[in-house]
């Protein structure tokens, strides 16, 4: 049985690296005695992966674990799992997904981030300026040294919640390209602070973006041949 589990990582757990988080989950499922599936081969490892790697130091209210079990598990099993997780890690929800849906991480198209700001009005002006541009060239370190990329297409939306003094960023993720929250903050002359939080990740459904727990998953509905249509995500 394959399950997507949504969880939050708060407080000091923000300092866990992607690898630390993976190791922590592997040990947690063993503590909970859940029947996790193992890969074959010389060095078997539990079949689990995350929707996306989180930068160290950033908290998340929308991490997702994509995990395979050898048997069906029940809601009570996941409640037990919460008991063996470290303080700061909270299970938020889960759903069963068809076995043949591609790995969750390959479906992610966008992530939503928010950070507390002090001067909402000033930031709002900068946001308006930034969004009015058609091209925002930034430097990125790649394998072959520095290169320039246009960040604009990957910034889907920036909004200010003035009352809450919050900046909300909807940024692209995935192999088509991505924008990192720290890059956007830097364009606004801000830097990531303690409050920077990933609030949701979103899967692409046609022109729309959908939460992994809400999206309708139907495998092989369109065409087996066209790779892009191997699966279809529907509302």
């Amino acid at each position: 049985m394959r399950v997507w589990i949504k969880f939050a990582m708060d407080g000091a757990l923000r300092y866990l690296s992607h690898l630390d988080t993976m190791r922590m989950w592997q040990r947690a499922v063993r503590r909970a005695a859940l029947p996790v599936a193992y890969s074959q081969g010389f060095n078997p490892h539990p079949k689990m992966s995350f929707a996306m790697a989180l930068p160290v130091g950033v908290i998340s209210h929308a991490q997702y674990l994509d995990i395979n079990f050898t048997k069906d598990i029940r809601a009570a099993d996941l409640e037990n799992l919460q008991q063996v997780l470290p303080a700061g890690l909270t299970l938020l929800g889960w759903r069963i997904v068809p076995a043949k849906i591609p790995p969750l991480m390959s479906l992610v198209r966008a992530a939503c981030w928010e950070q507390k700001i002090t001067d909402a009005e000033a930031v709002e002006k900068k946001v308006a300026q930034l969004l009015s541009r058609t091209e925002i060239m930034v430097e990125r370190k790649g394998k072959k040294g520095l290169k320039m990329i246009n960040l604009r297409p990957f910034i889907y939306d920036l909004t200010i919640k003035g009352q809450e003094q919050k900046l909300i960023m909807l940024l692209a993720v995935g192999n088509i390209g991505s924008a990192k929250p720290e890059e956007v903050l830097s364009l606004l002359h801000l830097s990531p602070n303690n409050s920077l939080c990933q609030t949701e990740i979103l899967l692409g459904v046609g022109e729309a973006l959908q939460s992994p727990l809400a999206v309708c998953l139907r495998e092989k509905e369109v065409s087996l041949n066209a790779k892009a249509n191997y699966y279809q995500l529907r509302q």
Binding site: A12, Y15, L16, S17, D20, R27, A28, R31, G57, V84, P86, A87, G88, N194
Partner: peptide, 20 residues
């Protein structure tokens, strides 16, 4: 320690003190 010092460290996970 948690607010002012921890964020400045290279490997903060050494000093969290709340491991399982």
């Amino acid at each position: 320690f948690r607010e002012k010092i921890l964020p400045r460290l290279q490997k903060p996970t050494r000093y969290l003190g709340n491991e399982i």
